[in-house]
């Protein structure tokens, strides 16, 4: 069966990868490129642990073929922090105690980043709705929602200072 050579940008760096047709983006990230921060929780588009940004929009990376990502730009959890400085969503989720086992956290952070990008002032209801595809079994979600709201506020005050 056919292999495809694709070129794409992951966390700001170009990668060229040979992938078989049936390889998902998640498999490619984890098994080919060792971006193991992105997690496999169900492989069925239900749990959201594998969420990454594809051209700026969150997707379940288990629900997209690697070959479909030719020319795409991917951001994984490893790409959120810049030069060791955490993204506001990362810092806020630590500060609010929104991390427990940490397995859903990468997907949650990506969903949160995408939400704030499209809606800089999300309400708690909007945050909850944006997270409905990120199952978390530890936290009960409340601290995650608080953290995202706080992250949006922090980002705004950061922007105001610049």
């Amino acid at each position: 069966m056919a292999n495809h050579r694709i070129t794409l940008k992951i966390n700001g760096e170009y990668e060229q990868v040979d992938v078989p047709s049936q390889m998902t983006l998640l498999q490619m990230l984890r098994d080919k490129l060792a971006f193991t921060g992105t997690k496999n929780g169900c492989n069925a588009g239900e749990c959201g642990a594998c969420t990454v940004l594809l051209n700026g929009e969150p997707v379940n990376s288990c629900m997209i073929l690697a070959v479909e990502c030719q020319g795409a730009e991917i951001v994984t959890v490893e790409g959120l922090a810049q030069d060791g400085v955490l993204d506001p969503v990362q810092q806020a989720i630590i500060d609010h105690g929104g991390v427990q086992c940490g397995f859903c956290t990468p997907g949650v952070l990506i969903s949160a980043r995408a939400l704030i990008n499209r809606n800089p002032h999300p309400t708690p209801d909007e945050i909850s709705e944006a997270l409905v595809g990120n199952l978390c079994r530890c936290t009960g979600y409340l601290r995650i929602v608080d953290a995202i709201q706080d992250a949006a506020a922090r980002q705004e005050s950061l922007a105001a200072r610049l």
């Binding site: 921060g37 490893e78 959120l80 955490l86 989720i93 630590i94 940490g102 956290t105």
Partner: peptide
């Protein structure tokens, strides 16, 4: 949490 940072950066 002592494990928080490594969990948020993947």
């Amino acid at each position: 949490r002592v494990d928080a940072r490594e969990k948020v950066v993947g």
